[in-house]
Design a protein around this nucleic acid. Sequence first.
DNA 1: CCTGAAACCTGTCTGC
DNA 2: TGCAGACAGGTTTCAG
Length: 285
Amino acid sequence: MPELPEVETIARALRSGGRGGVSILGRTVQRAELLWPGCLQDVEAGAFLGQTVGCEVKAVTRRGKYLCFSVGERFLLVHLRMSGDLRVETQLDEQGAARLWLPHDRMALLFEDGYRMVFNDARKFGRVWWVNDPEEVTGDLGPEPFQEHFSADAFYKRLQTFRRQIKPLLLDQHFLAGLGNIYTDEALFQAHIHPLTPSDRITPAQAASLWTAIRNVLSEGIRRNGASIDWVYRGGDFQNNFEVYQRTGESCSVCGTPIEKIFVGQRGTHFCPSCQRAPGNLTDL
DNA sequence: CCTGAAACCTGTCTGC
DNA sequence: TGCAGACAGGTTTCAG
């Protein structure tokens, strides 16, 4: 599900309420619950369950697609992968009875004031880390798209250091943190770049255009609280702004050519064959 | 270094 | 109606 805009939306809601949510800042952990221990990565369940008790949630931030919770002196990191979500609710229902767990609830922090934050993940791809330093988990991530010193020029230079198809490169979190399948397709469309273009054949002008497009689609995604698709993520509005994603066969908004879908690196890839021309000697299309 | 395939999982939708 | 098969917002690992 979640790419940078969806994760950012969740982080903001957990910080300040919003999206119908409740802030968890300042709440103290009474106890943690592991409903599916397999979600815990690189740490013993006992350490996690023991060390979280009595700790205050001091901050909620985002790095790439990771959520980072400052809890006491340590950090809880959560990656939602394909189907994960976080919700905050009271531990008791309206009748005063203990609220039941939902199907696919995997982990929860129960707070002293009667609230709880629950990690739900149908596909079991999502993971949770409990670490002394967030860098242990996010240290190898590429730059943040909105980072100040990540300039269009820096982006161009970084593209030149690889010789890879642009689409899988943009999806590679070590290259750039935060983009997923939706926003990558949308950004490449906006920049008029074919998804198979080798990164080192992208011109400075194209790089500048792509850099702007990436920031554009991510900003618009955040402004619209992310994209709601299928049954996984709700509350967002960006799906109504898709130009190519999941629009196979529909007319391109710019030139009217039917949008095509191909597979690139095993990921469904949507593009306009007319607006996003393949570079010269690429045999594809 | 680069690409593609497979694996990790469950839910939903399509087509026969 | 039922059921097999395809497909899904992500990441890691391995073979060639």
